[in-house]
Write a protein that binds this DNA or RNA. Structure first.
Lengths: 190, 190
DNA sequence: CGTGCTCTAGATAGATCGCTCTAGCGGCTA
DNA sequence: TAGCCGCTAGAGCGATCTATCTAGAGCACG
């Protein structure tokens, strides 16, 4: 049975990281949000904020990958799977008043030049996404080199759209990016 | 004649924001980097860090737009202009060890849900980029609606590529994104 | 020279930061 | 029951944060 406190801490941290980033989130705020005692953070994460950060990033990366797999599995074909992922992202943005976008992009930009362990955690998470998407397209019959390019293109479009949607408080960039991702995929399928 | 101190402060702030974000940058660090007295910040920006932040964001947005215009003007046609912008971004990333990417993306993600004045400043900057790119494509004979979609697609690709390049410490995403942007533009030109 | 204004210069306040520390609760086994 | 241990609980430390405050240098103008 998983420890409930450690899960509440990681859930709260992931949500706060996604909304306000790494440096903008204090440990006091995390324990308040998680209704957990302050000491528990250093009991479960003796490495402090940096260890908590890396583990939360890796977990968020896994969970978001699972979301992608779930949507892909529920879609009849690859094109509609990609389209569904973008429209789902747009809906989720609007429902949360443009707060819930990529779970690790904000942290990734913050820490890329300031903390090597945290940067590595974000790079590992992104790599699993790129590899999974590449495999998804390869299984559809696309050559591996092309599949990787389509995967990178799709993910760049997704992350860029997240940025513009949050800043502009509009879902237009996500819808345009989704259409571009579908177009890129269709072109790759010849 | 422009005040040299205020310029040094804004230059240092812009550079630190781009590398470590808004909350990760302290006012003490800014004045140290700018070789300016601490009091000068509150003399020139009585609104404190938030006012300094909004003005730096708006200025960075202007400067980056000028960079785009410069590259576009130096290119023989629209397609090569777009391609040159992406390859230039990739080179600059590699030269700065993946530190210098988008000057406002990091801040934009951090503040989107925490400070309305700062979010508005990032939104205004992004909007000028989208409008300028749209106009650039319209002048090449693309219908306005399509031109806006291509502009948004290109900028989403650029921002997403910045994120992945910085996290992965690789220029591959930028090169792939550049190729995708060119493909999107070519498709729009029929 | 004296006055006033802009800007420099930095000490300092008050709050918050990450982190360490001790104390104690509750459930386990001996 | 006694002893141990995982975990809760939060006070408090030194450092750092933003912001305010006073003091003075430098210059323009009468």
């Amino acid at each position: 049975m998983p420890n409930p406190t450690i899960d509440r801490i990681m859930d709260a941290t992931a949500e706060l990281f996604r909304r306000q980033g790494y440096t903008g989130t204090g440990l006091k705020q995390i324990v308040a949000e998680a209704s957990a005692p302050f000491g528990s953070i250093y009991h479960f994460f003796p490495g402090g904020k940096e260890q908590l950060g890396t583990e939360v990033i890796r977990r968020s990366g896994r969970l978001y990958l699972e979301l992608f797999i779930t949507i892909a599995a529920a879609s009849p074909d690859v094109v509609s799977g990609v389209a569904a992922f973008f429209t789902g992202a747009a809906e989720h943005l609007r429902e949360t008043d443009y707060a819930d976008a990529c779970p690790i992009a904000t942290v990734a930009l913050e820490v890329a030049s300031t903390s090597e362990p945290l940067r590595q955690a974000t790079a590992d998470a992104f790599t699993t996404w790129i590899d999974a998407a590449t495999e998804y397209f390869v299984m559809d019959g696309i050559a591996r080199t092309t599949a990787r390019e389509v995967a990178l293109t799709m993910l760049c479009l997704l992350e860029g759209a997240f940025l513009f949607c949050r800043s502009l408080k509009s879902t237009e960039p996500m819808h345009v990016a989704g259409a571009a991702a579908v177009a890129s995929l269709r072109a790759a399928k010849g």
